[in-house]
Amino acid sequence: MGVIIAKSLNEACVVLAENPATTVLAGGTDLMVQANRGMQSMDSVLDLSRILELKEWTLKDSEIVLGAGISYTDLAEPQIATVVPALAQAARTVGSPQIRNAGTLGGNLATASPAGDTIPVLVAMDAVLQLKSSSGNREVAITDFITGVKSNALQAGEIIQSITMPVFQGPQEFLKVGTRNAMVISVVSLALVTDYLGRKLRVGVGSVSPVPFRATEAEEFISQEFDWEKNSSLSEKVINKFSDMVADSTKPIDDHRGTADYRKHAVGILAKRALERVCANGES
């Protein structure tokens, strides 16, 4: 049993190459829960939390690259929040201040929970992950990265280095239902991202299927209906159809946090409200 505190990404990759079974620790907000339940081996641990490269972010051209080690707290800071507001909003819904200080974007992706709060946003934005190992780098689209309930496409020896997503012009919304007003696991969540240049509304949903996904049919419908010139208000009929299409695209389950019926109902409400906020209906 031992803990290796890596100081650089290269060092971390070397350690992981030598012992691919090593447990990778970032913020620890998911991992330690599992460890305390005896469900996670802590025989050998690689700590990424001191690697400064993982906390960096850059904005260039029409892309933002976020280091995997960026905390939820940092995601919610104005510098990043103004570029990807939905991601900041999602980060703010996570846990308590302590959890948001410790938990990281990369960790949220590695855990790959259906209820991962940032994932619907990343899915909606077609984010791409940069993975690094001692044998090289590769890029994986978010939808290919998350392969199932709490499973991901990381290969032995790989670390999530960063997440890249396009910077879109237009308002963004993230809404999450939980039974408590804060510090709660998502019962259902939805991200709506407008892309004025591409004339596209992008919708990502969480906690309504094994893997967060884009409601593509609903996106196509609403992107056609949306008034890209004047952003004038949409008819109730259009809003309701969009809401229904989003709800119909989901395959939720019953569990102790909510019923499938409720989830389907709620995701439709979230779709409606998000849409109203990004178009003129929200200003009434």
Binding site: T93, E173, V177, N181, A182, V184, S189, R273
Partner: peptide
């Protein structure tokens, strides 16, 4: 508002 940090509600709801 109800929903709190989840930003689910607007005053009209």
């Amino acid at each position: 508002l109800p929903g709190g940090a989840g930003r689910t509600a607007d005053p009209k709801n």
